[in-house]
Write a protein that binds this DNA or RNA. Sequence first.
DNA 1: TCTAGTAGTTCCACTATATGAAACTTTGTT
DNA 2: AACAAAGTTTCATATAGTGGAACTACTAGA
Lengths: 303, 303
Amino acid sequence: MGEQARQRHGTRQGAPAGSAGSQDVGAPDPDAEVRGVPGAAEPSAGPGTVGKALEVLDAVAASPGGVRFAELETRGRYPKATLYRLLQTLAREGMVQHDPDSGLYTLGMRLVRLAHVAWRHSSLAPIARPHLDALSADLGQTVHLAQLDHGQVLYVDKRNAAQPVEMYSEAGKVGPAYCTGVGKVLLAHVPAPELDRLLSQQSFHRFTPSTLTDAAALRAELARIRAEGVGYDREEHEAGIICIAVPVLSAQGRCLGALSVTGHADRMTAADLAAFLPELRAAAARISQDTQAWRFPDAPEPH
Amino acid sequence: MGEQARQRHGTRQGAPAGSAGSQDVGAPDPDAEVRGVPGAAEPSAGPGTVGKALEVLDAVAASPGGVRFAELETRGRYPKATLYRLLQTLAREGMVQHDPDSGLYTLGMRLVRLAHVAWRHSSLAPIARPHLDALSADLGQTVHLAQLDHGQVLYVDKRNAAQPVEMYSEAGKVGPAYCTGVGKVLLAHVPAPELDRLLSQQSFHRFTPSTLTDAAALRAELARIRAEGVGYDREEHEAGIICIAVPVLSAQGRCLGALSVTGHADRMTAADLAAFLPELRAAAARISQDTQAWRFPDAPEPH
DNA sequence: TCTAGTAGTTCCACTATATGAAACTTTGTT
DNA sequence: AACAAAGTTTCATATAGTGGAACTACTAGA
């Protein structure tokens, strides 16, 4: 794997504004990059033009209602002219929209088109869908399917206990990795060198009294999860919410995603959740199995 | 030196696969960039690094099952090293995933995260949702909500006549603009200078005998639509499928999107569809109204 | 109306960044 | 082992992005 012998600017401006209060505030990001390749002097590469553009894109995404140019100027670290050109490029490319009336920048529809393909063909969601349906119906509980994205948990699908499916508003939502069941399971299966990097990106914000707030404690927990194959969230992210999560492993043992069942602490105990383990694991296994079968459907779009 | 650096957008989606023969290929594309300054000769801007990266991203998106490096090399017009670095950058940024086992590139989850925000806050879909529900239930027909993206129709939401909602698999889907009801309505409301550019991007592939296959015919149709405020698709895209579409106009008269009702030609006539016009227009008006009211949840009022 | 101030856009000399031919390494095949 | 194909790295070069500053377009205040 190409090693990042570079030191990526503390880019990843955190906080993609979770609308569910699942922020992940600004981790100053110690730029101390894990020296990947030994011996090599730092080539000190900047983020590159593309990286800068994507950072701006994130900044736009962080203000859901739209942002003014000036707003971005203060927030970002780019001089006026540079920012201006980046935004112009992004707008021309359809990655952002610039409403001339209000002067606000919002994310562009090209993203929706791309994400449609990404979700359909690169995520576990379409394969896992029937299994999520079954699992949720079977247990009568809320289930989540998540994958890792830039050190954060990205929910790719969800079934609420009873409510009708409300897809887009759940798929794509992000949350912290260090204090959720799925997040910890996903982190537990990240190869060591990359884990170091990801851990340094975690904000370790204390959401509740039981939140793990330092890398050391988290590492211990991850080791336990790796050994046992189960992760718990004991009200670490949200008071009153507990959950149990298992990995979805590929045939080669790579972790493709994580599956979880969530419950209310006042109605269930961790033991109650643990009772779901067999079903959870079975569902994860079935998803994994289907992954292999479905290896590249390359399907023409249904019409 | 490499003076081939002009050709923009080559690999936009694949119109219904199979008809690849006459994609929107070639078209020297005067690339008349609306520079604001009239009469100025074009500086003939290249796509820029960001543009190239996004083109590669599109290329990856065009092969849903994943692409090998070599594949992209032949398809794209970039030399090995350039392509390689572009892909590396995109992968580092999470816009594509590179499965080290198979060597395949697929779209990255970061897109899903971004698109989640884009869809929720930049598209008409979340605002229109209840109105789509109502309209579909009221008429008992399939309805579509679409917006324009890079000269193509992008469906941001849909209600099937009876089936359960299947969001992600519909939102994000793209289709041709020149031969669909929503597409023509959207094009009809594009300001003249931009329209020229968009028309030159249309492939004008003949899907059915009634497909409009040249810009002139389309322009006439667009003028009619602009005058009457309704667009029809008379089996122009797909044999047996007809539809009626109206624009969703903002208070300032800008076209925010298009709303349509679709029917089967063997079960309905265009006149039958026309009977839905009042309801369609009413729904569009209600959506437009809500747009103003909902001046975006967590955004401070502009001005 | 005339400043003064702020937001947004353009200019242009400068050089940091991306480029791509070719060399090199790794992986798979006969 | 020898070969071929795929993938990765190097390095001299100029293209493409940079950013300070000037400029324009509004808006508010006097």
